[in-house]
Amino acid sequence: MTEQQYFDQYMSRELADSAKRRKRFSPSKLIIYLLLVFWALTTIYPFVWVILNSFREKGMIRKDSFSVPWPGSADFTMDNYLTAFERADFKNAYINSITVSALVTLIVIFLAGLAAYGMVRYRFHGRRALHLMILASMMFPVFSTIIPVFRLQVVMGLASTGNRYLSLLSVVLPQIAGNLSFAIIVLMGFIRSVPIDLEESAFIDGAGVFRIFSKIILPVARPSFATVAIFTFLWSYNDLFTQTFFLRYPKEKTITLLLNEISSQAGVNYGLMAASVVLVVVPVLLVYIVLQKNIIKGMTIGAVKG
């Protein structure tokens, strides 16, 4: 059998199964939905709140931040968005943000995938020590590592050069390191649960470890990689602290950085702050919605085949 056939077999069983489960009906469904809807309300509400207030006249938010500013009413305004656009070179900032976060995400899932696979499947001396190292590094606060990293990158000729691409690289590298430990830990948990029979039958058919990794582990653990990718992207994108340290000239700035600067005195102007949040959140939600497809069973089959 080829690897493709293993998959077809594996996935078609899965498809049959999920179809079966979907048909099943139980009276407890109502309670399930009530609970799900309740939680959904708590998560949607703040989001709606932010969007509504991004259209609200400043000064009104604190007085009356929980009503709807209908277009045309006295406290409806587009000013917050206009102010934001006026102040910033948005196109460039979105490009910078997405370049940095996409690079970080791709490299992290690749390197972490390799490392997690090695850590889970191999038995070797020092494995426990390496595991502890990964675990410990997850807790290194960025506040205490940033200065040595900055000096290091100045010596390497990456930081503070005034060159846009080098500056972006000087954010990408520490962010890769910062997200690796999390990614390895999570992927280890997932890969450990992958049944080893698939790998063994592939091995009997003569596949080497790298082939097994790319043709079995990567596709089977696809949902797990998507999950890790989502969080890596999100954290890289929202990581203001590293960005502030390394991106200082206007053309280098990311969208998160730019909008944070505009609304840095947000204590005063909640409307501008809300508009900034909306503008920042949009790309992350897009990435989530795109990547989330990979976490859904039905979609996985098509994705692997295609």
Binding site: L111, S137, I146, L152, A177, G178, L180, S181, I184
Partner: peptide, 12 residues
């Protein structure tokens, strides 16, 4: 992966 971690996490 560990090379990255050594340079950017463990050294600092």
């Amino acid at each position: 992966a560990f090379a990255f971690m050594m340079v950017y996490l463990y050294y600092p």
